[in-house]
């Protein structure tokens, strides 16, 4: 099966890099799926959206991403993010509590995390 190189990069570090068969992301224009040999594309992701990556080996990865950009070039797909969290690492209870916090940063993170959790429970 054809594959693409995918990188999920946050400001502070590289979160994930590897081969995948499909990547989906939510740009401000709508949800987009990127398969191998996609045409070059630059997109802005919605605030606190969800990104999924289907690696060629292993389980599907679902991440909540805030302040992100999607860049598809001939060689690879890069998702740039201010902050990203994996769905299975989100502490749902504390995230729900953060949702009402005054700290806009904590709130955004909680929202991104919860969306990722919701998405992974839907099993899409």
């Amino acid at each position: 099966m054809a594959e693409i190189t995918v990188e999920l990069v946050s400001v502070e570090r590289m979160l994930w890099a590897g081969q995948a068969s499909i990547v989906t992301a939510q740009t401000t224009e709508g949800e987009i799926g990127v398969l191998p040999d996609h045409e070059p594309l630059l997109g802005q992701l919605v605030e606190n959206g969800v990104v999924t990556i289907q690696p060629i080996d292993g389980e599907k990865l679902i991440a909540g991403v805030s302040g992100g950009f999607l860049s598809v070039s001939k060689e690879k797909v890069t998702i740039l993010a201010d902050f990203a969290v994996w769905a299975n690492e989100v502490d749902t209870a504390s995230a729900e509590a953060d949702l009402n916090s005054d700290d806009e940063l904590a709130k955004a993170r909680a929202e991104a995390g919860l969306r990722a959790v919701r998405r992974s429970s839907e099993g899409l």
């Binding site: 224009e29 594309l41 630059l42 802005q44 001939k74």
Partner: peptide
């Protein structure tokens, strides 16, 4: 390099 597609348009981006 082929032309890039922009979502949304380049200036907004």
């Amino acid at each position: 390099e082929p032309d890039y597609e922009f979502e949304p348009d380049a200036d907004t981006l």
